[in-house]
Design a protein around this nucleic acid. Structure first.
Lengths: 195, 195
DNA sequence: TATAGTGATGGGACCAGGTCCCATCACGGG
DNA sequence: CCCGTGATGGGACCTGGTCCCATCACTATA
């Protein structure tokens, strides 16, 4: 049933096809009313193959990112003289280039709406968020920034990224993610002096 | 099998008995090698009753807290003249009184170790953390603090609480949670000026 | 041309988490 | 003495997730 011969052995990009099918189905009937088997069928695959590509049902919306690595490399690549916040800004630019390019805005917005609508998916997103701040904290410490300062800068950087993520995916046109994120980071920094 | 008659109809505190049994079993054989049925049996109950008291298997370690409410009330109860950070400090004191009293330190430490050892439990903890910062953000906004400032203060407050939680549960004697948390909050504030 | 190896897939058995519904049984009130 | 109530027991059932083995097309090598 799954594959059409004559061109290639298997249709390529199985993980991506699964993610597309999943997002569509989650939009149509909701996450909890969608079965892994249904996702796999829509992608022309089976349950076995689904779990070969994704650890679990939630992960189908989180798999491709590798955002933690992008952030860490972005911080590491910042000029040696950069203060923690400048290094974080550098990392947010990298995210805008590699993880949130302008043409993915629509997809990101759809994905965001689906996640917001389901507690189980929000939980997974919360865990991913922890990973991101941990990754940034580590990268800052490797620059010689003291432990606590690294923690705080990473935490505020993650907050700025979350805010930017919301603002950016809510508009259909406008600045790219890097711009929005830099503004969010400035706002957060300003707010942190008022506490 | 479950209940002994002659005294009361059912042994009281089913949720607490389930939580104790669960923590013991998680320590003995690990979270994923423990079955809900086994937890229920050790507590003298059944699977049905377990799921009547807890939404899912993870929740047995998170159910009793109601920490979000304590934090919100603590912030609301702070003097009207208090700055955001002072209000947060007030809330952390409330947590030390109502959620982390000195005699629960051993329990909290055991629970913490079990959670740290399992990704599924860490994920649930991350979600609870989101709930806490959301609760603090709301409470601050209700005091008239601007949106972004509330976000930042809540985020840094949550970070201080996490740090205090680690420090407090790592020692067997010493200050109560409120003291530790106030120190952590001061440290965080100091670090935030160095970003 | 034949043969063996490789890698992504299909398929089914199996377990545990989680839901649902109904039976049970002790207690309190009439 | 009977009835309502509430926490529980028990079992059917679905789905997420794991495991293991079969399949099948392509590739390399002889």
């Amino acid at each position: 049933m799954p594959y059409t011969v004559l061109v290639a052995r298997w249709q390529p990009n199985a993980p991506e096809r699964l993610a597309v099918a999943a997002l569509e189905l989650f939009e149509e009937r909701g996450y909890e009313n969608t079965t892994v088997i249904e996702i796999a069928e829509r992608a022309g695959l089976t349950k076995s193959t689904f779990f070969r590509h994704f650890q679990d049902k939630r992960e189908v919306l989180f798999g491709g990112s590798a955002m933690a690595g992008v952030l860490a490399e972005g911080i590491a690549a910042a000029p040696a003289t950069a203060e923690p916040f400048e290094a974080v800004a550098h990392a947010l630019d990298a995210v805008g280039r590699e993880a949130f390019p302008p043409d993915r805005r629509a997809w990101v917005a759809r994905r965001r709406a689906v996640i917001a609508a389901n507690p189980e998916l929000r939980e997974r997103e919360a865990l991913k968020g922890l990973g991101l701040t941990a990754s940034m904290t580590d990268a800052l410490k490797r620059r010689g920034v003291p432990e606590l300062t690294s923690c705080v800068a990473a935490e505020l950087g993650a907050l700025a990224m979350k805010i930017a993520y919301e603002r950016w995916s809510e508009t259909t046109d406008g600045d790219d993610f890097g711009e929005v994120a830099r503004r969010a980071l400035r706002d957060v920094r300003a707010a942190s002096t008022l506490c």
